[in-house]
Amino acid sequence: MTFSHFNRRFHIYLGMVLLPWFLMYGLSAVTFVHGGLMSRILGTKDVKPWRPLFERAYDAPVPTADKLNDLGEKIKRDAGLSGLHGTYRENDNQINVYVYTFLRSTQLKYFVNEKRLIAEDKNFRLDHFLTGMHTRAGFREGLLGDLWAVLVSIVAIGMLGWVASGLYMWWQLKSKRWLGLVALLAGAISFIAIVFRL
């Protein structure tokens, strides 16, 4: 097998294995930029955001601000939930914990004075599902979360690999060199011109 053969197969097979991520990033990017349009197309514009899950008595000491996320972790566990979470102090009496997985989001509201915990599930929306996956990154969320982050890095390195292998394949096509060079330079000049004025 020559290097050209290897390079072509690398370009194609990398594309095939990372295709779901590539599609997800492309479609979610459109959703980010045109959120209103996408929610109309997907029919999610009028979806009621939250539905009640439970309400129960709950009591837990409220720590200082820097330990608030530990309380969020405890509330999440006590509610029998798992997933990434964020903890926010809404006001002196209310602490909100958002528990997030790709397919499900839950909002836990802890009312400190009333000693009550209210849970609401978010109704599934395809546009939010896509943007949620797009923004999920980083090594801080347990083994599976870390493995997802590894795949995010592989996709990013894969994109660099596509660029490099694509450039090589184009350069091998002698009849396409000039027009390809025009496209490459036009892109580079446009990019520089826009970014310098941005």
Partner: peptide
């Protein structure tokens, strides 16, 4: 191919920033 060549700088920015 030509679209990829034109958008190479954008792809590089998104890959590196990711």
């Amino acid at each position: 191919m030509y679209l990829a060549l034109f958008l190479t700088p954008w792809v590089l920015v998104y890959a590196l920033s990711t």
